[in-house]
Write a protein that binds this DNA or RNA. Sequence first.
DNA 1: AGGAGGATTACCATTGAGCGGTAATCCTGA
DNA 2: TCAGGATTACCGCTCAATGGTAATCCTCCT
Lengths: 261, 261
Amino acid sequence: MANSASGESIIGRFVKIVSAFDDRHTSMTVAELGRRTGLPVTTTYRLVNDLLRERLLEREPGGDIHIGTRMWELVSRGSKMLGLREAALPFMEDVQAVVQHSTTLGILDSDEVLYIERLGSDKTIVDITKIAGRLPLHATSSGLVLLAHAPAAYQDSFLARPLTKFTETTLTEPSLLRRHLAEIRQRGFAAMPGVIVPESSGIAVPVFGPDNTVRAALSVVVPRNEENAAARVPVLMAAARGISRALGWRGELKGTLRQSH
Amino acid sequence: MANSASGESIIGRFVKIVSAFDDRHTSMTVAELGRRTGLPVTTTYRLVNDLLRERLLEREPGGDIHIGTRMWELVSRGSKMLGLREAALPFMEDVQAVVQHSTTLGILDSDEVLYIERLGSDKTIVDITKIAGRLPLHATSSGLVLLAHAPAAYQDSFLARPLTKFTETTLTEPSLLRRHLAEIRQRGFAAMPGVIVPESSGIAVPVFGPDNTVRAALSVVVPRNEENAAARVPVLMAAARGISRALGWRGELKGTLRQSH
DNA sequence: AGGAGGATTACCATTGAGCGGTAATCCTGA
DNA sequence: TCAGGATTACCGCTCAATGGTAATCCTCCT
């Protein structure tokens, strides 16, 4: 692979181009795209034109380009995210209706929580989760739930590296974290007051797939000063079980119980 | 472009590969992917491996591959769909809370309505809209709204081709449709009883962008036998204005009113 | 154990698609 | 009118991509 002087494949360059767009920069001129990606000018134009031809990119009246509707459609339709989302949404709506604060669904990807769905952006409390946004595992309730149910080998390697301490309550000490993860597995939920942002706290529970492994974490963000945040747990758990069942989960398998840790 | 014997570019093949996945087939073996795309075996394997390397595709334990989380993330984050969705969701939740049936948001793409968001899949009524799914313009309330506010030239070319008659009430006669579109523009909403599915009817209103053009259609699907479906219109309209404003729309421009038809 | 059938990888000669430089042209605002 | 950036046009070089054949792996089934 790599026809280029720099040794990159077209696929690699495609990724560079798509990556140049984010929620802050959804459209830009081709020249600017070239600058952002660092690709040679001519190459950028040629590649962009190829992508325009396939409708993976689109040119707007002003001349700026943006990610094409076709690309969004193809990826959304073929991705497993949609299935998960479809299964989760009705239950998330229920949670949202009762809890009133923002409800999110996150998965484990590349050592971080990737939020794939979110309902109810409540401006009154601080909530930095965004759809298609990422946050560190050890500093979010969703992340802790996902980490707690990940394979032991994975936990080990994750806990081996240095962890950023965002606020006073962020746990970074491996041994303390381990104990906390065990607790999360046992209680079935994670409740973290102000782990990233001091003013808000998150509560998260696991969502299971047919093979009884954890697929996602369902969580709500509430103001930290709320009296008994733990009262939210049953609602979340019920919803998570509903989602799990919609995914094909059949309750905890009594006979062939398989531990992931 | 096209190094291949068949004269396809890599980008084209990339599209073929991604297109091979849909909501019914979210994962498959590489060999099957080759069959579905019609690409030469070796080529399929090489390309898939390149894509796996970039994490645009992912291999699951069984060996099957599926669209990668990275791909979903990159496209979602960079796409304008997210912005539209973020703006619309809070209002859609409100509509959903009041109307109780399913609420959808659709845009015009490739002569069809592409649904980009949907809340409340009510199993009690028939509703064939899916996220990232498509339906014909002339047979859905959303589509009619979008068509009604499209440029005149576009309407002409669209109405020039033969239109499928799905049920008794589907309008296919160009002149009748034109009159109906005018009516929709004037009243500000489209209400179609059983245009695709006889048992349900849809109501849709336009969502405007900063330049006062129509960006999307907000709609609800209700049972056809509901007494006064038209009573839903004000709620929808209020929500649509809210979304429009969130997109930067500043009310109908009195001075420099620009007609799109 | 053996073997059939599919999935996957290894190998390799051929070639044209991608590459990226330079230069011309278009566009926009001052 | 002019300046500076964005975009397109042109072009020779070359190696990455191609896709055939064949070997290997893997999974059931008998």
